[in-house]
C-alpha cells in the first residue's frame, strides 16, 4: 500500500491552485472518459439517482452513451437501472438477443449499443448511481471485467466524494439540500417489502415506486411511512 506524503501533496495542491481553479464537471468527466481507455470499450457513462431514486444522466463519453442513459432514465428500465436496484453488476452480452428491457432495446441497438456492463456507484456503501461501459458489438462479459468495473466504481466514488468537498468549498456550499439518509430509508423499505412479500429487490422497488406515484408522494416519504407504520400509506 503506498503512503502518500501529505507535505508533498499539499505543496502540489498549492501549485495547482495557483495555476488555475479546478473545474468540477471536467474532473468528473475525465474519470468517466478514462473508463473507455481502461476497458477498451466504445463508450461509458455515469448516472446518479435523484431523490425519487430515478437515475439521471450526468456524464457520458460520447453521443450513443448519452442517448443510452437518457433512454433508461425516461423508461425507468435498462441494464443500469437493474444494476442500481439490485446493487450489483449487471450485463447484457448481446442486446438483440436479450428480452429483459423491451422499452429501451430498439433505441440502444439503433445507436450502436449492443453489449453493456453496468455497475452500482456507491457512497458510504449506499448505491447512488451507476457507471456503465458498452461495446458496439456482442461481447461475453466475464467475471474479471465485472470485478474490474466494480473496482473502478470505487474510484468514481472517491471522485464524487472529493467533488462534494470541492463543491462545499465553493459557491454552491449553501445549496446543499438532501442527505444521503433518504437513500438509506429507501433501501431499508425495499428490504422490508422483500421480506414481507417474499419477492426480489426489483419487484419490491417497483411496488414502492408505484405506491408513491399513485399517492403523488415522494418515494422517500412513502418508504419512511412504511418503516414507521409497517404498511404503505392509504
Amino acid at each position: 500500500m503506498p503512503n502518500i506524503d501529505p507535505e508533498v501533496l499539499a505543496s502540489s495542491l498549492r501549485r495547482l491552485e495557483r495555476v488555475g481553479g479546478a473545474d468540477i464537471p471536467s474532473a468528473v468527466a475525465d474519470v468517466v472518459h478514462a473508463a473507455v481507455d481502461l476497458f477498451g470499450v466504445t463508450g461509458s457513462g455515469l448516472m446518479v439517482a435523484d431523490e425519487e431514486n430515478s437515475l439521471h444522466y450526468v456524464a457520458a463519453s460520447n453521443a450513443p452513451s448519452k442517448i443510452m442513459e437518457e433512454a433508461q432514465s425516461s423508461a425507468g428500465e435498462g441494464p443500469c437501472v437493474t444494476a442500481f436496484v439490485l446493487n450489483r453488476v449487471v450485463h447484457t452480452d448481446d442486446l438483440s438477443q436479450d428480452k429483459r428491457w423491451p422499452q429501451i432495446r430498439d433505441t440502444f441497438l439503433r445507436n450502436g449499443v449492443v453489449s453493456v456492463l453496468g455497475a452500482p456507484v456507491r457512497l458510504g456503501g449506499v448505491p447512488v448511481g451507476t457507471l456503465d461501459v458498452f461495446l458496439d458489438r456482442p461481447h461475453d462479459w466475464d467475471d474479471t471485467e465485472a470485478a474490474a468495473l466494480q473496482r473502478y466504481c470505487d474510484l468514481v466514488e472517491s471522485t464524487l466524494s472529493t467533488a462534494l468537498a470541492a463543491q462545499r468549498a465553493g459557491e454552491l456550499a449553501g445549496q446543499l439540500q438532501y442527505a444521503l439518509d433518504y437513500r438509506i430509508v429507501i433501501e431499508r423499505a425495499v428490504g422490508y417489502l422483500m421480506a414481507r412479500h417474499e419477492t426480489g429487490a426489483e419487484e419490491a422497488f417497483t411496488l414502492l415506486r408505484s405506491a408513491a406515484r399513485s399517492r403523488r408522494r415522494k418515494v422517500a416519504e412513502v418508504a419512511q411511512y412504511l418503516l414507521d407504520t409497517g404498511r404503505l400509506p392509504d
Binding site: 502518500i4 456524464a59 460520447n62 458510504g124 463543491q167 462545499r168 438532501y178
Partner: peptide, 28 residues
C-alpha cells in the same frame, strides 16, 4: 461529450448534505 453541468450540480447537491460519506482523506 460534455458533462450535463446542471445534472451534475444537482446530483452533488443531493448527495452532499450528509458530508463526506466515508471521511477519507485525499491522501487515502
Amino acid at each position: 461529450m460534455p458533462v450535463d453541468q446542471n445534472a451534475l450540480a444537482a446530483s452533488l447537491d443531493s448527495l452532499g448534505a450528509a458530508g463526506a460519506p466515508d471521511g477519507r482523506t485525499l491522501e487515502q
